[in-house]
């Protein structure tokens, strides 16, 4: 099913959102802007300097990370420990600035990055090459994130800060730096997801909101603060989308997703696929 391939990329985006939430209890409303930034970075790198599309991915990861770290210090750091609304407002205003600038430069027209990849046919299904490669790259990035979080000292420190920030500080972990690093990772994941989405679908400056909503639905499905759950939730959302598309026009998917979001929040406030957390 194609939904699994596309959904895994939704999962990647949601992983960025959920990582930031898990580590610092911050709902990052620059998430959509980061996804769009990934899309346009791909567009600029391929059309501007003729870079092969997938070579842009490492650049976008690194650039997204650096921008995320900077964003942490600009918009998030001073809000930590203040009422949650403050962070929503400050990240939302960054979002508005980015989208505003994007609209001023590129307008709201449709963009498309042509990626020539042969598809694969299996029995009666044909999978597009970009969808397959996007899912494979998602798996690689998600796997790397897992290795980082569970098998490196710094990654374990990220989990320690997520688990108990004061205790982390007391064992000598510079927790503020870990927060900025985690924010950087979250933005890098969002940017990478945006880039991979742009290899599959056309996009506009305003696409961010729709994908940010998808990320929220995915985290609702997968459980907030749970990167592995995000991947499962993403695949589930991809399947729902693919299924719904057979019965109704594509323009309805957002409505379906929003309804799904609300229903899931009411019935499973801690996530459908939330793994047990102690």
């Amino acid at each position: 099913m194609d939904g699994v391939l596309i959904g895994s990329v939704y999962g990647l985006a949601a992983m960025g959102l959920t990582l930031i939430w898990g580590v610092m209890n911050v709902v990052n409303l620059t998430h959509g802007a980061a996804i769009v930034a990934g899309m346009f970075a791909l567009y600029l790198l391929t059309s501007g300097i003729d870079m092969p599309p997938y070579a842009a991915l490492p650049l976008i990861l690194v650039g997204g990370f650096l921008i995320g770290v900077a964003l942490y210090w600009i918009a998030v750091h001073r809000m930590i420990g203040r009422p949650p609304l403050m962070i929503l407002l400050s990240t939302f205003s960054v979002n508005l600035v980015v989208i505003g600038l994007g609209t001023a430069v590129w307008g709201t027209g449709l963009f498309n990055v042509a990626v020539a990849l042969p598809g694969v046919t299996w029995r009666r299904y044909t999978f597009s090459g970009t969808h397959i490669l996007a899912a494979v790259l998602t798996a690689i990035i998600a796997g790397s994130l897992y290795l980082f979080l569970y098998h490196t000292r710094l990654g374990k420190a990220v989990r320690a800060v997520a688990n108990n920030r004061e205790a982390a500080e007391l064992v000598g972990i510079p927790t503020t730096r870990v927060l900025s690093l985690s924010f950087g990772l979250g933005v890098a994941l969002a940017g990478a997801a945006g880039m991979l989405i742009a290899t599959m679908f056309p996009f506009t400056v305003l696409s961010g909101d729709a994908y940010q909503l998808k990320s929220f639905v995915v985290t609702a499905l997968g459980g907030l603060g749970n990167p592995a759950g995000a991947l499962v939730g993403g695949v589930a959302l991809g399947l729902v989308e693919g299924f719904a598309a057979q019965f109704m026009p594509v323009s309805w998917t957002l409505v379906i997703e929003f309804v799904l979001f609300v229903v899931v929040l009411i019935i499973f406030p801690r996530g459908v696929f939330a793994f047990k957390r102690s």
């Binding site: 989990r159 320690a160 108990n164 205790a167 102690s278």
Partner: peptide
Amino acid sequence: FSNMTVDENLEM
């Protein structure tokens, strides 16, 4: 670090 193992707590 309640979500982490004994080994991980000691490593931290």
